[in-house]
Design a protein around this nucleic acid. Structure first.
Lengths: 110, 110
DNA sequence: CTCATTGGTTAGCCTAGACTAACGGTAAGT
DNA sequence: ACTTACCGTTAGTCTAGGCTAACCAATGAG
C-alpha cells in the first residue's frame, strides 16, 4: 500500500490530530475548527488539504462555507495496515520466545 | 494516552518503518538491520533508540552484539488508539449521513 | 596485552515542513 | 454596486529532526 506513508505522516502532526479530534464529534466549517486552536485559519486550511489528500477527510461547499467531515476510508486502510503488521510481528515475537526457552532448557542440563 | 504522539511520530519515518519491517520476521542485530538499508549504521542506531523509547522494540545484549525484537506492547496501544478513534468517527459519519438524508427528503416535497 | 568486531554517542550540516502575513476569490446581505 | 464574512493560496521565515563523520566503550580471539 503506497499511501500508507502519506496516511501516517498526516497523522503525525499534533495540530492535524487536534483537527481530527474536533471533527470526531461531527462536521465543522473551517472557521469553527480554527477557533480554539493555537494556529491561524490559513494553517488549518493547509492541514485540511493534507488530511484530504491522505483520505482522512471529505469536504462539501455550503454557500460561502466549506464543511469538513471525517472520511472513514482513511482510518480503515490505516487499521488494515496496522493489523497486518501486528499479526506477523506477534508471530515473530512468540517464535523468538520459544527459541529462547529452548536455549534456556539446553543450558539447564549441561 | 500521552505517548500516543510519540508512537505515531516514531512510525512516521520511512527508515524507521523499514527497520520494523526487517524486525517483523524475527530478531536481528544492529549490523544486520543496517545492511541493505540506504543509511549508515549510526543512523539505524539512532532510529532504534527512538523506537525503543516509543515502546516499539526491545533490545538484549548478547556478547558484543545487541539483538533487537519487536515489542507487541507498542503496537497494541497504537491499535487501541486507532480503534477508539475509528468508532466515534464512524458514529459521527453515520449521523451526518442521516441528517443529510432528512434534509434531502424535506427538499423533495416542497 | 593487542587487535578486530560490534554499537552507542556527539557535533554539525542540511532538508522537510509548519507557521504567518498578505492577497485574491466567491457568496450573501443591504 | 458596496460591504462583509468565509476560505484557499503563495512567498518567505524558522525550527525539528534525519544524516554522516569522527570518536569512544565493551567484548572476544589470538
Amino acid at each position: 500500500m503506497a499511501n500508507t506513508a502519506r496516511l501516517i505522516s498526516a497523522l503525525a502532526d499534533p495540530t492535524r490530530r487536534a483537527v481530527l479530534e474536533k471533527l470526531k464529534d461531527g462536521p465543522r466549517p473551517v472557521g469553527e475548527i480554527a477557533r480554539g486552536l493555537p494556529v491561524t485559519r490559513p494553517a488549518v486550511s493547509q492541514h485540511l488539504k493534507v488530511l484530504k489528500e491522505a483520505g482522512l477527510v471529505i469536504d462539501r461547499s455550503v454557500g460561502t462555507r466549506r464543511i469538513y467531515y471525517i472520511d472513514p476510508k482513511g482510518l480503515g486502510t490505516m487499521r488494515a495496515w496496522l493489523d497486518q503488521f501486528w499479526d506477523s510481528a506477534l508471530d515473530a515475537f512468540k517464535l523468538a520466545a520459544e527459541v529462547e526457552a529452548e536455549k534456556a532448557a539446553k543450558k539447564d542440563h549441561e
